[in-house]
Amino acid sequence: AEDTGVRVELAEEDDGRKASIALKLWVEDPRKLKGKYKDAGAIEFTFDLEKEVPEGVAQEMVESGFFHESDAKIVGKSIRDRVALIKWRRARTPPSA
């Protein structure tokens, strides 16, 4: 995935079954953000793979004061890339019965 300066990783091991997964997001390179970034730390949140869209979560982060409005897109993209990877992995390795 493209280096957006925002890192998103699984906060817990993916069992391949749950639609809702825990993710952790933090800023690796604040220079890649447009808005001024206040270093808050790593933000952990749950994401529903079936019902939610990454851009929606990014917008909630903006509204919660973690990021500037102008960075919603880059945060959304970072989450989207990680979610796509998780879905891809799940498709390749279905959970055992």
Binding site: E28, A40, G41, I43, F45, V57, E60, E63, S64
Partner: peptide, 27 residues
């Protein structure tokens, strides 16, 4: 480290904790 919790009006919970220095890029 200390963790804080921020709850968005839509109900989502964000748990914020310090990032280990080893996970940050060199400036």
């Amino acid at each position: 480290g200390a963790t804080t919790q921020v709850v968005h009006s839509a109900g989502r919970r964000f748990i914020v904790s310090p990032v280990p220095e080893s996970r940050l890029k060199e400036p």
